[in-house]
Amino acid sequence: MHELGVTFYVVKDVKKVAKENKVDKIDFVTLEIGEVSGVIHDQLIDCWNWARKKETVTESAELNIETLEAITFCEDCQAEYRTVDYGKICPYCKSENTYLLRGNEFNIKEIGVYDEDDEES
């Protein structure tokens, strides 16, 4: 993919959400990434750890990644199957007439802030 390019998008979106919610500093960001979105997680985390330092609001934020399973649908036999196991060819009827139902996601799921005031209690 192009991990650095998308990292800038994540930073930009996270900044926007933080501002809307009047948060000055965030502690973690959780992404939802589809299994076949082509994103290399380790590279994305490396890019994030470099890019986050450029903004005060993100500088100490950890990046968490949740993987979403990829599912393909077969138009000929109407079956659904795991994309990663079988690719484009339906394991039930061997048809190539299939399309990806999900697994291509690249979403920001949530951002998290530790509540400083409650830390001591």
């Binding site: 959400v17 979403n107 949530e110 998290g112 802030v113 530790y114």
Partner: peptide
């Protein structure tokens, strides 16, 4: 932890 749900495509 305060969680802000985003659920937005990057």
């Amino acid at each position: 932890v305060k969680i802000i749900e985003v659920h937005e495509n990057v």
